[in-house]
Amino acid sequence: MREPSLLARMAESLFWIGRYVERADDTSRIIDSYLHRMLEDPTENEDVACRTLLAIMGVPTDRVDKVTTPDVLELLAYDAASSSSIIGSLSRARENAQGSRDVISTEMWECLNTTWFELPARRAQVSRTGPHAFLRSVRDRSSLFAGLTDATMNRSDAWRFVTLGRGIERIDMMTRLLAVRIASGVLAPDWGTLLRAAGAEEAFRQVYPGQESTELIAGFLMLDPYFPRSALFALTSVEGDLAALSDNAIRLGSRGDAQRIIGQARTTLEYSNPDELIHRLSEILELITTACADATEAITLRYFDKATWVQWESEAE
């Protein structure tokens, strides 16, 4: 029985569904941990913290006046027009799912569709319940979607494109978090916040009870082979997905470019000396960031390239 062929356009939609849902999930964790920190420590400079957060998410802040928490929530959570915001990401995920309904399961579609329909109401509730409930519901829905993806889809290429997108987004988010930690110097978030933002606090404390050093935390977030959100874990999973895809789609060049790019990044990370990691962190992060961007480009070129609108010109003698 041959594996059913997957339309290039569908593959692209699935990849972006994976990315957008993961982005909404990660963004909600990050915002939540920042809000939490500001509540715990009222001496925290709100403007600086907010700017840091926006920088992590790649949202430009050329504003001269003070950036406030409501501003951040608007930009990163509610702005439907932005692909960096939670509502923007979930809307785009649903839009992509609409175009690929016949390859995802009905339950996955209904999960995204219901989430989307409920967004305005949940957003409206924020004024009464605060943003935490909203952010929490986003994580719940994302987890439900991830669970349904794994529980209801055949392990076909279609499924792999969703997990591929999820993995790449996860790596991207982790490198963003760490990059800001390095770049912002004294204004950087403390490691505790970072662990929470990465959804790693409990997992870290189980492995290293009572310890908290820069080296250990950076090492855990980057190199831990068992923590599913570590950069190494995500790279390994992405590499696996790419390998399975190229088995099913043999063309010129037996190894896909994307797989080679991710494989090299994974190897560099895997065989780097944990003790040196903290000193070479910025170099390694840059390498991974570049690898993710290049891999996305290679995936697009190889699997999605042709799914574009064509504007016909007519000609007549």
Binding site: V310, W312, E313, S314, E315, A316
Partner: peptide, 11 residues
């Protein structure tokens, strides 16, 4: 029409 067609690309 002696020759008619469509294509995409430059004018």
């Amino acid at each position: 029409t002696p020759l008619s067609g469509i294509y995409h690309g430059a004018p």
